[in-house]
């Protein structure tokens, strides 16, 4: 099993006829993702190239509701500019979409504040994220599919290329992945580390986890607290990008205080240590450390 996404998940693409939307639709189809339709207002009734996987092309609809009514889609991925992203997410929510991937970079933080507070029940991955992939099953995002391999390691990450770097190492070491979620790098995101950890915790096919964080914010500290309470003994290796970054350039004093002076590498390292999670100093150590952990836990 995988979390959030498998080969039967019905996916639509909002902004399917745009340059990026079209490009990545082809890539996702080639990976095996079950793309059942797309949305571009005014282009309903047309189709886009479906490759060898979708005979007669992928149908395009005028609205998300039309697409969902016609196809039963549960997942969407948005390739829309930042100023239209909030509207697109609300349209997905209105059409009862269960999971939306927002790749878009540059969505105003206030738009996201409002969206996450008013779309209960819809999982939002991102924004400013590479999407998610359940290797060998489906990919909804912009990740390079070939670096992933099916397996039993779950991965959650705040960054894109660093994820590929780490996954590449895992794959080469024979550690395939169940699902990899790129949760995105913006200040206000939908799904957090903790949300994903909760889902992985109940996935019988995920034996071990990699948590790839960054300096700033308190997501890593929250993840460590969750692991300490709910996943003791689970083989987990963490990585924190930006540990050598100098302090400074903070977003004003108020931000630092309200989050309780967290966000520093020291704070994150201490939190993971308290949860018994080993933090790799470099990405190249992750496969080895994970194997040790998995052997110790006999999984």
């Amino acid at each position: 099993m995988s979390i959030y996404l498998d080969k039967n998940s019905k996916v639509i693409v909002q902004g399917i006829t745009g340059r990026e939307g079209l490009f990545h639709t082809q890539r996702m189809l080639a990976y095996g993702t079950n793309i059942v339709g797309g949305v571009t207002p005014g282009k309903g009734g047309t189709t886009v190239e479906g490759g060898t996987t979708v005979e007669g092309g992928v149908p395009v609809f005028n609205t998300v509701k039309d697409a969902v009514d016609a196809t039963g889609a549960t997942h969407t991925i948005l390739f829309v500019p930042p100023q239209f992203a909030a509207d697109a997410l609300y349209e997905a929510y209105d059409a009862k979409i269960g999971l939306a991937v927002a790749v878009t970079e540059g969505i105003p933080a206030h738009d996201m504040l409002k969206i996450v507070a008013t779309t209960p029940g819809m999982r939002i991955v991102g924004p400013n994220c590479p999407g998610l992939v359940s290797p060998g099953r489906a990919l909804v995002g912009i990740m390079p599919g070939h670096v992933f391999a099916p397996g039993r390691v779950g991965m959650i990450s705040r960054s894109g290329t660093l994820t590929y770097e780490i996954v590449d190492g895992l794959t080469k070491a024979g550690l395939g992945q169940s699902t990899c979620v790129g949760i995105g790098g913006d200040p206000i995101i939908g799904m957090t580390f903790v949300d994903c950890l909760r889902s992985f915790a109940s996935d019988p096919e995920t034996d071990a986890l990699v948590v790839c964080g960054e300096i700033g914010g308190s997501d890593e500290e929250d993840a460590a607290a969750f692991i300490r309470e709910h996943l003791p003994g689970k083989p987990i290796v963490a990585f924190i990008g930006g540990r050598s970054a100098p302090k400074g350039k903070r977003l004003g004093h108020a931000g630092a205080i309200i989050s309780g002076n967290v966000g520093t590498p020291e704070s994150k390292l201490a939190a993971f240590a308290a949860a018994g999670v080993q933090v790799a100093d470099r990405p190249s150590q992750i496969p080895g450390l994970l194997k040790e952990r998995m052997a110790a836990a006999a999984v």
């Binding site: 990450s157 705040r158 960054s159 894109g160 290329t161 660093l162 994820t163 770097e165 790098g185 790839c212 960054e214 300096i215 990008g241 930006g242 540990r243 050598s244 970054a245 100093d281 470099r282 990405p283």
Partner: peptide, 11 residues
């Protein structure tokens, strides 16, 4: 290429 990889490179 990428913010995460950039930070990882500094590290």
């Amino acid at each position: 290429n990428g913010a995460g990889l950039g930070m990882g490179t500094m590290d």
